[in-house]
Design a protein around this nucleic acid. Structure first.
Lengths: 124, 124
DNA sequence: CAGCATCCTATCGGATACTG
DNA sequence: CAGTATCCGATAGGATGCTG
């Protein structure tokens, strides 16, 4: 029997709230606009203003803050070009790319169910 | 050419922040403890106290609130048994079950990356 | 263009006490 | 056991004005 076969999967009951991997992920990508930022960056590099335009309704201060958060976590790369006017480009790091299946899962479920649920909630 | 083949996928740029399906999903499952609640309910029905014990650290008030939220969204089923002492059981609805791939994706990424990132962040 | 600084408010979530 | 009610502090996020 290989080592791999003897590995025990932890039971769900082994995960408390702080130790729950689902909760840990949500803590990192759950801030306002972070999901949308990552979603748009899946398609490629974007400048600050282009991101803000696509997120429609996010304040500049918060967009900056969330981008800094994601950069600090090593998920987003920020590249500043020494030009006038200034140009700053944002893209996913390799670690950020590992989020692709997660973001896609959230997108699929969002289109299939979340939209409808929110519609009902907000009209109630 | 079939109708299916002529369907256009919306470009990412078509999704503003409020209209972003990723953001919509996060809005529904992003509250404190909601990720962990859904994660634990994937394994089956749980009573209120058992959930609180597993989430370790969540206040009773918030656990109640999040469960009511999820119930209102149609993701969680709440069943009250007319006994003394009272017994209330929580489980996923069929709609809640559709979250399984999403929660599993968040779990996998959490174990592979989120734990490490949070560790570094919190020690800094 | 891509921000930073400041101020302000609303919502989130914790603590505690009480109850059918 | 599984809540509800009340009060409270923390913080997330918005609005505005200024700048290299």
């Amino acid at each position: 029997m290989s080592a791999r076969e003897t590995e025990q999967q932890p039971r769900h009951s082994d995960y408390s709230q702080r130790g729950c991997p689902v909760e840990a992920s949500l803590e990192l990508i759950g801030g306002k606009g972070k999901g949308a930022i990552l979603f748009h960056l899946l398609e490629g590099t974007l400048r600050f203003n282009e991101l803000q335009r696509r997120l429609e309704g996010i304040s500049q201060r918060i967009l900056t803050k969330q981008l800094r958060d994601l950069e600090e976590c090593g998920l987003v790369h920020r590249e500043v070009f020494a030009e006038v006017p200034p140009r700053v480009e944002y893209s996913l790091t390799p670690k950020g790319e590992t989020l692709r299946p997660v973001i896609l899962a959230l997108m699929e479920w969002g289109k299939a169910h979340a939209f409808d649920i929110l519609q009902v909630k907000n009209s109630a």
